[in-house]
Write a protein that binds this DNA or RNA. Structure first.
Length: 254
DNA sequence: ATGACCGCCGGGGGCGGA
């Protein structure tokens, strides 16, 4: 099973790139974030014509998440109100016996912003829900645009981002709690330092590799034992009209 | 090199993103 997470930054703007990715890479599961469309205007045929099942939790202008899967999805959750607070950021499904949670976590703007408080509440509610409803001994994947660079090597200038959202100690405290519960950063060991998943549109960040690793796969030990590799589809970020995020792929064996 | 880019809505700039 090959699982990809990709913040596509508007399905409308990225339609052709998504279609080409499905045709060329053909992942088993594609978790998407920032669709920026309401459910009724999402063209499901993009996915269904290629043999994918689809669950969507769309939202106009901002946010919006979806999962496309070649394998039928069970026990789907479309939004978790106590976590999202009316912003559409959460989908979950069980695929081939693996519980997959696809998230678009808040960014936080700056540490004095109400949006940063919302980000911290989002993580607190998420951690409570995971601990209450799940068991680290079972196969579980938390993926998506988590908007946290966990280590100094996961961000191009950790000094500049000291106490800035994406690399803030309060976020690292939440990250540590996820790991304490039993999750493991499954992709990182397959990457070199300085391999990122996001580059800002401004200032030629991609050409200069001024990026961050903020799109992740956090998995429980039964999933970790199946990991055969991970790959950042960096070529996607170099295309014309690219998303500012690259797709990240996790490869699982039987 | 985050005032410097991109997508959104709406039909002009302002907001959000990270």
């Amino acid at each position: 099973m090959r699982i990809v997470t990709w913040n596509i930054n508007s399905l409308k703007a990225r339609r052709e790139h998504v279609e080409a990715f499905l045709d060329d890479v053909a992942p088993t599961v594609l978790c998407m974030q920032e669709l920026k469309m309401d459910d009724p205007v999402i063209d499901r045929s993009i996915f269904e014509s290629r043999g994918y099942h689809l669950i969507t939790h769309g939202q106009r202008t901002y946010n919006g998440v979806a999962i496309a899967s070649r394998i039928p999805m069970k026990d789907t959750i479309i939004g978790l109100p106590e976590v999202e607070e009316d912003q559409r950021r959460f989908t979950a499904a069980t695929i081939d016996g693996v519980r997959i949670v696809n998230l678009y976590c808040p960014q936080g703007q700056n540490e004095l912003s109400d949006k940063f408080q919302y980000k911290l509440r989002f993580y607190d509610a998420l951690i409570d829900w995971i601990a209450r409803e799940h068991d680290p001994a079972q196969p579980f994947i938390l993926t998506g645009d988590l908007n946290i660079a966990p280590r100094a090597v996961d961000i191009f200038d950790p000094e500049q981002f000291r106490n800035v959202p994406s690399f803030h100690p309060f976020e690292h405290e939440r990250w540590a709690r996820l790991l304490e519960w039993g999750l493991v950063d499954a992709a990182v060991e397959w990457f070199e330092d300085g391999e990122y998943t996001f580059w800002d549109y401004r200032g030629g960040s991609f050409e200069r590799n001024l990026g961050m690793r903020i799109d992740h796969f956090l998995v429980t030990p039964p999933v970790l034992a199946r990991v055969q590799g991970a790959h950042i589809h960096r070529d996607q970020r170099g295309k014309e009209r690219a998303s500012d995020h690259a797709p990240v792929e996790l490869i699982l064996g039987e």
